[in-house]
Design a protein around this nucleic acid. Structure first.
Length: 366
DNA sequence: TTTATTCGTCATATTACCTCA
DNA sequence: ACTGAGGTAATATGACGAATA
């Protein structure tokens, strides 16, 4: 359903690509009345999204008017779904001096997809562009809606659409896909069916991939060029890049997650080993009371450089713990500092079995 | 210069279609 | 023929920055 707000043209008929002529006709019309078209239908033309979006800055009011007579006829068969509907969308003509002709059937028209099924019911937010007001004369102002709401604020529209799932038995070979993808902008518009998601052809995907490798974001110029090259709508190219970036990020997140998992396993193993070593040392101490008679060695961390200094009352640092600290030299045990850009090293104290007083660059008064 | 508005684009989450096993 | 999973095109939403009145 759409509330198409237009200026003038209250008596003009719909045209599949009427928006293309919108600008000039709008300016040429002498009747600058205030007209609202209300309709329900899947007749949005995919190309309109971007073309109109691109024209949005040049035209103030737009409404879609791409309903076809065939679709309208089909809709008539099902208008029982809407009790007080007739053949054409409701038009709220606010023109005080231009009464709506009686022969124009103002109605809420339920339009269904090409197979006529309406199984999916009434969905407010699906296929937003499918709107038309028909029998409005030779042109209308198209309102497009695939763009985000905040970017279509001037169109004053709401879209409701009946849609259904098509049969899936049609062939889906590559040629078909390519043809469908490349022709979607025209075919679907013409038959007025609800827009369906179509896979891009391999060639299109490959081309987009190549382009993505060069730059993962698009300038408007690049977007238009790609769209033209691939016979897609600019919006499709834009969406493809957005989804591609999202996929890349998701994949990277998965890689990072896997890497952190391995890090966790490594650290857990190291922790287990250290605990075991500690137990062995304690056992050794109990069994050999003379073994640990060396002066106690304490580890203190310098708050300024986060280095751990071995301070002892003697130079006898050759305690068994020294073997463990050397294991961490040069951060070799920190597995998080490389490929993924993730690093745990900033949160882990670095163990350097150096003589604090000799090698520390800072002057500590303590 | 500051402020409000509009517009375009982005990231993110979600939906829904399509394909395939 | 049916079904569930996975991939992905498309949509919804909010945030942000640039341009402009």
């Amino acid at each position: 359903m759409e509330l198409g707000l237009s200026l003038g043209d209250a008596g003009t008929a719909s045209k599949p690509f009427g928006f293309m002529e919108k600008s000039s006709k709008l300016t040429s019309k002498t009747n600058l009345g205030f007209c609202m078209g209300l309709s329900i239908g899947p007749n949005h033309t995919p190309q309109e999204d971007d073309q109109d979006k691109e024209k949005r800055s040049n035209s103030d009011h737009k409404s879609d008017n791409t309903n076809t007579s065939a679709a309208a006829a089909e809709a008539n068969k099902r208008k029982s779904m809407a009790e007080d509907t007739t053949d054409s969308p409701i038009q709220l003509d606010l023109l005080p001096n231009t009464p709506v002709p009686r022969n124009q059937n103002h109605s809420l028209t339920y339009l269904v997809s090409d197979n006529g099924n309406t199984s999916r019911g009434f969905d407010v937010n699906r296929f937003p562009a499918a709107v038309v007001h028909e029998d409005q004369g030779d042109q209308d102002v198209a309102a497009l809606s695939s763009s985000p709401p905040n970017s279509a604020t001037s169109s004053f529209q709401m879209d409701f659409c009946m849609y259904s799932s098509k049969g899936r038995s049609e062939s889906h070979n590559e040629a078909d896909q390519a043809e469908r993808a490349s022709s979607r902008a025209s075919d679907e518009d013409e038959n007025g069916s609800a827009r369906k998601k179509l896979r891009l052809s391999k060639e299109q995907s490959a081309f987009l991939e190549e382009s993505f490798k060069e730059h993962n974001t698009l300038t408007p110029k690049q977007k238009l060029a790609l769209a033209k090259e691939l016979n897609l709508r600019p919006r499709q190219v834009e969406v493809w890049f957005q989804n591609r970036r999202a996929r890349t990020k998701l994949k990277q997140t998965e890689v990072d997650c896997e890497y952190l998992k391995r890090c966790c396993e490594t650290l857990t193993e190291e922790n287990r080993r250290l605990h075991k070593e500690l137990q062995e040392l304690r056992a050794l101490k109990t069994s050999n009371p003379f073994y640990m008679q060396l002066p106690a060695t304490t580890l203190t961390m310098c708050p300024s450089c986060e280095r751990v200094a071995t301070t002892s009352t003697s130079t006898a640092a050759a305690t068994p713990t020294a073997t463990t600290t050397t294991n961490n030299q040069n951060n070799t045990a920190d597995p998080t500092s490389k490929t993924t850009g993730l690093s745990l090293s900033s949160t882990r104290p670095r163990f350097y079995p150096f003589s604090h007083t000799q090698t520390h660059p800072h002057q500590h008064t303590s």
